[in-house]
Design a protein around this nucleic acid. Structure first.
Length: 249
DNA sequence: CCATTAAATTCAA
DNA sequence: TTGAATTTAATGG
């Protein structure tokens, strides 16, 4: 089969899968630059990767050779600390980019990424993306905005971790997850273990469990297994609003 | 941090 | 669909 017809098959396949419901086209780099990313004649440097729940698709220390866009599913991005403790850097959902920090100059990934649910990923090689960026200023500009935003978020996170108490950090984490993933029948729409809350908040599993217990006694949250129901978002916000509370995505 | 028990999830029959 | 096996939550030392 000829290469260009192979490529058409690829694009058709993509098109039928690109009807993602929770994607705001305006904010989605893949969708708003669909033509740039998918209509090139070359098949090289793009792929769809299917990732099962719990599967790690970026290894810390592995050589960087491209970057991922999440099509469906959710992903956690983490870095391993000094005594083997995991620090979750961020959670990502569809339309977000993973592995971008190493894109320009870095040789190796400084982060790992694991699918929290079954996920589909678009993969683009460095070379492919470089060509797309060079050829399309609007795409390059949108990418730059994305990077600026990421940097801002990451600087805010430093403040949060270093200045807040454990309880405040756990609350901050709950609000962040809720803001980002919304809720389904009152429960936060992302099942996370207590350890994962801890790894994001920079604490231990036990601390999170104890803070949760207190919050339950105070009737600020309810839990059912992994599912968490925030009773009063306002009261939780108030607890940390006197410190730094930044709206980020 | 570790040990114990309770609870929830997974998996396969 | 059930329940046995495994994993995760919760608490107290």
């Amino acid at each position: 089969m000829h290469l260009s017809s192979l490529n058409n098959m690829f694009t058709d396949k993509l098109q039928e899968r690109t009807a993602c419901n929770n994607c705001n086209t305006k904010n989605c780099l893949v969708h708003s630059h669909y033509d740039v990313l998918f209509t090139s004649v070359s098949l090289q440097g793009k792929a769809i990767i299917k990732c099962k729940k719990g599967q790690q698709f970026i290894m810390e220390g592995a050589p960087v050779n491209g970057l991922f866009f999440i099509k469906t599913g959710t992903v956690k991005v983490f870095r391993t600390g000094i005594n083997g403790r995991e620090q979750i850097v961020r959670f990502a959902k569809s339309c977000e980019i993973i592995g971008h920090r190493g894109f320009g100059t870095q040789e190796y990934y400084s982060i790992g990424a694991i699918a929290l649910q079954d996920a589909e990923l678009f993969y683009f090689s460095k070379e492919y993306l470089q060509d797309a960026l060079m050829a399309n200023p609007k795409f390059a500009y949108d990418m730059m905005l994305f990077y600026a935003n990421e940097l801002n978020r990451s600087e805010n996170k430093v403040k949060t971790i270093s200045q807040m108490t454990v309880r405040e950090r756990v609350i901050d984490t709950l609000l962040y997850i809720h803001r980002k993933f919304g809720d389904l029948n009152g429960f936060i729409n992302l099942p996370l273990s207590r350890k994962e809350y801890a790894d994001y908040a920079g604490t231990t599993e036990e601390q999170v469990i104890r803070v949760f217990s207190l919050l339950k006694k105070e009737e600020l949250i309810r839990t059912k297994g992994k599912k968490v129901n925030i009773v009063s978002i306002l009261k939780l916000k108030n607890e940390i609003s006197e410190h730094n509370y930044f709206l980020d995505s």
